[in-house]
Design a protein around this nucleic acid. Structure first.
Lengths: 199, 199
DNA sequence: GACCCGAGACCGACCAGTCGGTATCGCCGG
DNA sequence: CCGGCGATACCGACTGGTCGGTCTCGGGTC
């Protein structure tokens, strides 16, 4: 416990291989069902190497979330800063979220399934990040409803829940070799949501 | 192995207490993180009693799914047999699914999180049941789109994914002591979906 | 020759499931 | 109405094995 507070976390080939193996296995069998021995075996390293880079097995899990959410949040900032009208912003956010989810399917699957395994400190950090994205979408819809751009078909909060609902479930059914490309799905979801919001 | 093939499964107070404890713990900490010792402790029974009623820890998990899905499927049959017009049928299905999800929140949470832990036989049984509900909704939307009752804003499959997306995510955010009653949420979701489908 | 990366044997805790056993009850012949 | 017998309900110590994490040490690099 007192030996290393947070571990190096520098990106090296060994670090990357461990991460890769962990994401694979967590996505495939779940966090608890995956042993550290399996991770090091698939990564072709030893326990010593793993515990050199990561403080614990849980730390590995947190790093996976952190990477995924970090990328999504920087996309959010990029998109909102473009100053597009609400419908185009919403479309862009949906497209980005779907691209990010399908492009990081394993990470998204692990996140959806195991997010409650984080300890209190990490958990609240992750929740705060998630909430930032959620609130951004809700506020966007809310404001557009206030100025009449969007209809008040349903409360902004519910619309947000519908959007994230579909996206967050994607790891459960989406397959890269399936019939529809992510961009198609994004267009369909955006079309449907904007149709429901049309004044 | 040869001693008991499937166990009695009769409902007794002991059986019910074990089920209750297992659902609680699986929902709270996850299936793998819950030990059989914890279940029997919370249920105030012994290991012997648990293995008298259930073939294995996995069997407990399957029974939880089975109960939930069984109830939902019989609701599905009841509703479709009423012969209501598509919009009212869809509204009734959404309301029922939301009522069932919020009324069995822990079971729904366990299902959403741990459904991949089932072995091949149980897993395909559960998947088939789930698909039956999914297909019923998709077919309903599809037919109504063909005869012009619903608009072709998005493919029926995508609309179905949107509906189940929000509902299946509910265990992640819905709290019984929250501001909105299940019936309200059902109305809002149905209003939004039907608005998007209006010709 | 100091330092960091990585190796892998090792530890105590814990786990799912087993098994030999006891207690309780319904039923049936006399 | 009774005695006994088979079946069901339940008990809990025990086992073989796995787990996350630690620790000591080798070897390459500056």
């Amino acid at each position: 416990m007192s030996r290393s507070a947070a571990a190096p976390a520098r990106r090296t080939p060994v670090y990357d291989r461990i991460m890769e193996a962990a994401v694979d296995l967590f996505a495939e069998k779940g966090f608890d069902a995956t042993s550290v021995a399996e991770i090091v075996e698939r990564a072709a390293v030893t326990k010593g190497a793993l515990y050199h880079y990561f403080a614990s097995k849980d730390d590995l899990l947190f790093e996976i979330y952190h990477r995924l959410i970090g990328a999504q949040l920087s996309d959010l900032d990029r998109i909102t800063s473009l100053g597009l009208p609400p419908d185009e912003t919403l479309r862009a956010l949906i497209a980005d979220l779907i691209a990010s989810t399908t492009g990081n399917l394993r990470e998204a699957a692990v996140f959806g399934r195991e997010s409650h395994k984080l300890d209190a400190a990490h958990s609240s950090a992750v929740r705060a990040d998630r909430r930032r994205y959620h609130d951004a979408v809700r506020t966007l819809v809310e404001r557009a409803q206030q100025d009449g751009t969007f209809a008040r078909t349903a409360p902004a909060e519910t619309v947000t829940l519908i959007i994230f609902g579909m996206i967050n479930q994607m790891p459960k059914w989406y397959r890269p070799d399936g019939p529809k490309a992510p961009a198609e799905l994004a267009t369909e979801l955006a079309d449907f949501v904007l149709a429901g919001l049309r004044p």
